[in-house]
Design a protein around this nucleic acid. Structure first.
Length: 477
RNA sequence: GGCCCCUUCGUCUAGUGGUCCAGGACACCGGGUUCUCAGUCCGGUAAUCGCGGGUUCGAAUCCCGCAGGGGUCACCA
C-alpha cells in the first residue's frame, strides 16, 4: 500500500483565512492519521495576481497553527521544486507529450474573437464550447501562443470522498488552455502534473473546482495518469450565510486571530468542526483527538456559515482549561507594558485571578492594567453605577473613610479581608453590592474585577489604602 | 441561460424507515452561586426536518417534481 500523501496548494495572492486553512487542515489531518506526508506547494502561475510577501505569510500561518509539512518550498524534499514557477520546464515537457499525441493545439483566435464567440453563445442561450471551434488541422505548439488541450468528450462516473458518486455529462467537458502565451501553465494543467510527480494520493480542495473535475479526468486520461482520490470540501460562507468567505469582503487573516490571542488549538478545533463532527456529542477536540477521529467522508456536503461567537466560546473554554504554566507562556506578548516592572511570580498571580474571565488573550491588558499601573480617579464610575449614584458625595466619602479605617487594621490576607469587610457591612448596615462595588471602584478604577478580597490581597495594603485615599481626595474637590 | 452541487432550531450540527410531534452545542432569555464582570450550575425559548406529490402500516430518512441558494462556464486559482 502506498503511503498517503496530501498537499496544500495555495497561490500566493495574500493571506490565509479560515476557509482556506480548513482545507489545509483536512489534508493535514488525513496525512497525519495515516502516518503519511503533507506537502506544501505554491501555485504561483499567475504573476499578475501575486502579492509580495504572501509565501512567507502562508508559511508563517501554517507553522503558527502547527500544520507542519514534510516537503515544501522552504524545506525542500525529494519531489521539488515546490514552487510552480520553478517547474516551468516540467510543464512544457508534459505539454509536448500532448502535442505529440495530437491532444493539444495552439490557440488560433484572438481574445476579441473568443469574446465574440462567447457573446453569440450567450445571446442564443447556448453553452459555448471551444471544441466546436477547433482548428481544422492540429497546428502543433507555437512559442508565444497559448496551448489548448484537445478534449474527448464523454460521460464520467467518479467518486468524491465527500460528495459520493458523481455523474457528469459530456457537456461538462471542453478544450481548455494548459499553457498560457507567457509560457506559464494554468492551474488546470500544472496541478495535475505536480500531483502526479509528487505522488499525491489524495486531493482535498474546495468546491469551486467541482465543476472542473470532469475536464481534469479527461486530461488525466490523455496523459495516461491515474487520478488521485479526490475530496471536495464545501465552501465556508461568511457570517451572513450569503456568500463564501473571501478576502474581499469579510474574511480575516488567521494570523490576526493569533495576534488577538486566539489559541491555535481553538482555531483548529473550530475549523475542523465547521462541517465535520464525529457523530458523538463531543463539541471540542484536541489536535490529537482530531488526528485520531477525523474522517473525510463525514464532512458535511452543505456549506457552513462562519460563526465567530462559537470560535470565541471555544477559545474561552480552552483558556480556562489551560495549566497556569501554559497560560503564562502563551500570555507573554499580551501584558500591558507596565507589567514588565513586576516579577513573573506576580504576573502569575494576576493571571490566576483573571484566567477564567479571559475569552482571548488580548483581553489580558484591559483586565489586568490596574494591577500594574496607578490610574487617575474616574468619577464617572460612581455615576455609572446604578446603586452608588443614589448616594450623596458625603455618604460615599463616609463609606470610604470607614473602609479605610477597617482596612488599616487588616493583614490583607484574603480571609482577614473577608472577615473585616463583612463586619463593616454589618456596622454600616450596607449591602455588599454597594460597599464592595465602591471599594472596587476606588482600588481598581474599574466597574468590574476579580473577587474583591483576592484583588485587594494581590494589590497589597499600601497600594489599596493609597488608592482609597486618592479617591476620597478626588471626591472632596 | 447550460451543467453541477446544496437545503434539520438564528448559527454549527446529530440523525441513513419505527426508540424523533427531532437530540447536543453556540447564541439568546430566566434563576441559583449571601460583591461586580466573567465563569459555573439549573431551567427556558427556538427547526410541522425548503415546498408539493408519491412509496410504506409507518419517512427528516426512499422516489418524483418544484422552489430557493451556491458553484462553474477565464491565457484566475
Amino acid at each position: 500500500m502506498n503511503k498517503i500523501r496530501t498537499r496544500f496548494a495555495p497561490s500566493p495572492t495574500g493571506f490565509l483565512h479560515v476557509g482556506s486553512l480548513r482545507t489545509a487542515l483536512f489534508a493535514w489531518l488525513m496525512a497525519k492519521q495515516n502516518n503519511g506526508d503533507f506537502i506544501l506547494r505554491i501555485e504561483d502561475t499567475d504573476k499578475s495576481r501575486e502579492v509580495e510577501g504572501s509565501i512567507e505569510h502562508i508559511i508563517k500561518s501554517l507553522k503558527a497553527l502547527g500544520l507542519n509539512y514534510n516537503e515544501g518550498p522552504d524545506i525542500k524534499g525529494p519531489y521539488g521544486p515546490y514552487r510552480q514557477s520553478d517547474r516551468l520546464d516540467i510543464y512544457k515537457e508534459w505539454a509536448m507529450k500532448l502535442v505529440d499525441k495530437g491532444r493539444a493545439y495552439s490557440e488560433i483566435y484572438s481574445e476579441e474573437e473568443l469574446q465574440n464567440f462567447r457573446n453569440e453563445a450567450k445571446q442564443s442561450k447556448e453553452p459555448f464550447l471551444y471544441r466546436n471551434f477547433r482548428p481544422k488541422k492540429l497546428n502543433g505548439y507555437k512559442e508565444g501562443q497559448a496551448l489548448r488541450f484537445k478534449s474527448e468528450p464523454k460521460e464520467y462516473l467518479y467518486n468524491d470522498l465527500i460528495y459520493g458518486d458523481l455523474k457528469t455529462p459530456k457537456e461538462a467537458i471542453d478544450d481548455f488552455i494548459i499553457l498560457k502565451s507567457d509560457g506559464y501553465p494554468t492551474y488546470n494543467f500544472a496541478h495535475i502534473i505536480d500531483d502526479y510527480l509528487m505522488k499525491i494520493t489524495h486531493i482535498i480542495r474546495s468546491s469551486e473546482f467541482l465543476a472542473s473535475v470532469p475536464k481534469f479526468l479527461n486530461l488525466y486520461e490523455a496523459l495516461e495518469i491515474d487520478p488521485p482520490k479526490m475530496a471536495t470540501a464545501p465552501a465556508v460562507l461568511g457570517p451572513d450565510g450569503k456568500k463564501k468567505l473571501s478576502k474581499r469582503d469579510n474574511a480575516k487573516d488567521i494570523l490576526e486571530y493569533l495576534n488577538e490571542g486566539y489559541l491555535k488549538d481553538a482555531l483548529i478545533s473550530f475549523m475542523a468542526t465547521l462541517g465535520w463532527n464525529d457523530g458523538t456529542r463531543q463539541e471540542i477536540f484536541s489536535v490529537d483527538q482530531l488526528i485520531q477521529k477525523f474522517s473525510i467522508n463525514k464532512v458535511q456536503r452543505s456549506p457552513a456559515n462562519f460563526d465567530e461567537k462559537r470560535l470565541l466560546y471555544i477559545n474561552g473554554y480552552l483558556i480556562r482549561n489551560l495549566d497556569l504554566d501554559e497560560l503564562q507562556v502563551l500570555s507573554k506578548s499580551f501584558w500591558p507594558k507596565e507589567a514588565q516592572n513586576y516579577q513573573e511570580s506576580y504576573q502569575r498571580k494576576v493571571l490566576a485571578l483573571i484566567q477564567e474571565r479571559l475569552k482571548y488573550l488580548g483581553e489580558i491588558e484591559a483586565l489586568s492594567l490596574f494591577f500594574f499601573k496607578e490610574l487617575d480617579v474616574n468619577k464617572n464610575l460612581i455615576k455609572d453605577n446604578n446603586k452608588l449614584r443614589e448616594f450623596t458625595n458625603e455618604q460615599i466619602i463616609k463609606m470610604l473613610e470607614a473602609s479605610l479605617e477597617v482596612l488599616l487594621e487588616s493583614d490583607f490576607e484574603v480571609d482577614d479581608l473577608q472577615l473585616k469587610l463583612n463586619d463593616l457591612l454589618q456596622k454600616l448596615n450596607q449591602k455588599p453590592a454597594i460597599l464592595f462595588s465602591l471599594i472596587r471602584i476606588a482600588t481598581t478604577q474599574s466597574p468590574s474585577s476579580p473577587g474583591l478580597f483576592e484583588t485587594l490581597n494581590l494589590l497589597g495594603k499600601d497600594r489599596s489604602l493609597n488608592r482609597i485615599k486618592q479617591q476620597i481626595s478626588a471626591l472632596n474637590n
